[in-house]
Amino acid sequence: MEKEKKEFYERLEKKGASRRDFMKFCTFLTATMGLSSSFVPKVAEVFAAPKQRPPVIWLHFGECTGCSESVLRSQYPYVDDLVLEVLSVEYHETIMAAAGQQAEDQLHMAMKKYKGKFICVAEGAVATKYDGGYGKVGGRSFLDIAKEVIPNAAATICIGSCSAYGNIPAAAPNPGGYKGVGEALGIKTINIAGCPPNPINFVGTVVNYLLLGKLPAIDDLGRPLFAYSKTIHDQCPRRSHFENDELVEEFGSEEAAMGYCLYKVGCRGPETYNNCPVAKFNDGTSWPVEAGHPCIGCSEPGFWDKFTPFYEEI
């Protein structure tokens, strides 16, 4: 282990990341996961020296691939490490080099080889009406694929609000009968909600699994408590403006320029559970409210039907 660790840090340095940067990330991730700081070295080990990279089968159903794109923006660990050195992504339609029959064969080979051992990541909602006729890959319905793959996984993580709750594919009038994976299959799933979710919440969930051998504690909507236990409103840096009745009534106004509360222009922060104000997106660059836009509540079930029209006060 020591030798592997040493090699790992040498690799990191060659790539321009210092051991200190790496530990900073591990500390941040450990805090995001809600673990005590004594776990930091263990979290570091998950990235430093995997014996065998945990196999991942990533399924795409009815979605826009925004969740995959979100994970591709992961900066710590950089996505090349995540894909080449932490996980073994055996099947992922967007990034895999194989296509067509080769890709189908790869899915089946990986399922056989890693039966009961792979992590299944599901992205997208599943069409349930007309025998799943409104959503197919390679002539097979999403529903059939989900039923074949998911029961063979060690754990299934639903990434994004579509696989978690149906989201936009399931929004009215929903002719294809789209549903979240859990509802479509009648199973409980762990849901990394968001449209798309912050990659840190996905990475945190995976690390939790690799580190402790189990998925993190979840709320009654399947969302990991480490990320989704508080409302946006309760963590919002603009909260004091809400308390002081300092509210934006029009975009581009003086109040908007002063960073006042966006409640009156439709912010769904009070009804939305997520860690956006704390974790922020793209290596902590910003998040929607910081960019002056009200939260649209994208990590809540049925947000598209429930929260529109977006710019009206709740």
Partner: peptide, 28 residues
């Protein structure tokens, strides 16, 4: 490169500073 969107759009993918009539990121 994706951080370019986060700077004036809050996040990437799916930046969120665009509204009918202009943009919301006046503070940025």
């Amino acid at each position: 490169t994706a951080r370019l969107h986060a700077i004036f759009g809050g996040k990437n993918p799916h930046p969120q500073s665009l509204v009918v009539g202009g943009i919301t990121c006046v503070k940025d």
